[in-house]
């Protein structure tokens, strides 16, 4: 995030940097928080100089981006299969045009015991596959942020060998593939929101080191509930928004898949269509009295899992409209 970058890295001369520092201005963000008048006073410079300085800092911190939507689409197409991590469930992957997309957050929502964690484990196993098998590559890393101590390495092994016997199974020709998988996945227990924010903010170095392409956060709801009383909606939203900002930035910068699980606090409307019904009832980690189902997390794709006919419904907000479909009977997961 360029706004947090120290001003001294922006090519300003040392004298100016020390003058800025003695005025308490260390980052571009600091500078923008002041009015021009305040800057004129604290730097003892003319208004023209201040404007010039602000303009210079602006051009330095704005990311270089001479890209059009056409360029971006070409880049994604060239990245090909590794743009998505397949879920391994064919109709679902078809609807999602390949799987969960990199570069953005996908939220899994559902009641307890529906299979959210199982899905996460399955996607983790899938992500570690070579690209030709629908994964993100064998050099890809997975970070699993476990807030409820639900991660089970044994279950991961089980799912991997059942879903991909050719690759991970007992008689696999790929030597050491299971060993590799287990090394690709790093699990961090996270106990509270503050710890999560800390973890997320230090994740950047690891993202580069271990080529992390999948971040699983299972689950966000547990943290928020643990930390805040119900009436404290505002600070809860504030913290969630902050977490979302860091996650989105990581997802985009490292073209990683970010998978976040969440719970529902109110029941689904059984008769109404899912677009309407579930939308109103995913109060999740936000104010459950809000009828509109406001989610502070603002995820790009939301997958709603329901009990009953074992259906999973996707509400991919950013993905093509026709993918917004109810897909009954497709969850082949044995939970």
């Amino acid at each position: 995030m360029a706004g947090q970058q120290p001003l001294r890295r922006l090519g300003l001369d040392d004298d100016l940097v020390s003058r800025l520092a003695s005025a308490g201005l260390h980052t571009a963000g600091d500078m923008f928080s002041k009015t021009e008048l305040q800057l004129v006073q604290s730097l003892d410079a003319s208004r023209e100089k201040v404007v010039e300085l602000l303009d210079y800092v602006s051009t330095r911190i704005v990311p270089e981006q001479a890209k059009t939507a056409g360029d971006l689409l070409r880049e994604r197409r060239e990245a090909g299969a590794s743009f998505f991590v397949a879920t391994g469930i064919q109709p679902l992957d078809d609807a999602l045009q390949g799987g969960f997309p990199t570069g953005m957050i996908t939220e899994l929502v559902g009641p307890a015991g529906i299979g959210k964690t199982q899905t996460c484990l399955q996607v983790a196993a899938q992500a570690c596959l070579p690209a030709k098998l629908g994964g993100l590559g064998e050099d890809a890393g997975v970070v699993y942020l476990d807030t409820e101590r639900k991660f089970s390495p044994d279950r991961l092994v089980e799912i991997a060998s059942e879903r991909h016997p050719g690759h991970y199974g007992e008689f696999s020709t790929e030597k050491g593939s299971m060993e590799r998988l287990l090394n690709q996945v790093t699990v961090f227990p996270v106990d509270n929101s503050a710890a999560l924010v800390d973890r997320l903010e230090t994740l950047q170095a690891r993202m580069i080191e271990s080529n992390v392409r999948l971040i699983v956060l299972d689950s966000i709801a547990a943290l928020a509930r643990r930390d805040f009383a119900r009436e404290d909606t505002l600070s809860r939203q504030e913290l969630l928004t902050r977490q979302a900002a860091v996650l989105k930035s990581l997802a985009y910068t490292f073209s990683a898949v970010v998978l976040v699980t969440n719970q529902v606090t109110t029941s689904f409307y059984p008769t109404s269509g899912l677009q309407g019904g579930s939308r109103q009832s995913i109060a999740s980690h936000t104010n459950s009295s809000s009828r509109e189902g406001k989610s502070a997390f603002e995820t790009e794709t939301r997958m709603v899992m329901r009990r009953g006919q074992r259906a999973a419904t996707f509400v991919p907000r950013a993905l093509p409209y026709f993918a917004r479909a109810s897909l009954p009977h497709l969850f082949g997961l044995e939970v």
Partner: peptide
């Protein structure tokens, strides 16, 4: 279709300082 896609410039910004700076530029 390519011309349409090419006619949309995209800036991706990661924090509020970048956002303010972008408006300035």
């Amino acid at each position: 279709q390519e011309a349409f896609l090419g006619g949309i410039h995209v800036w991706r910004l990661h924090d509020h300082a970048e956002q303010l700076a972008a408006v300035r530029t």
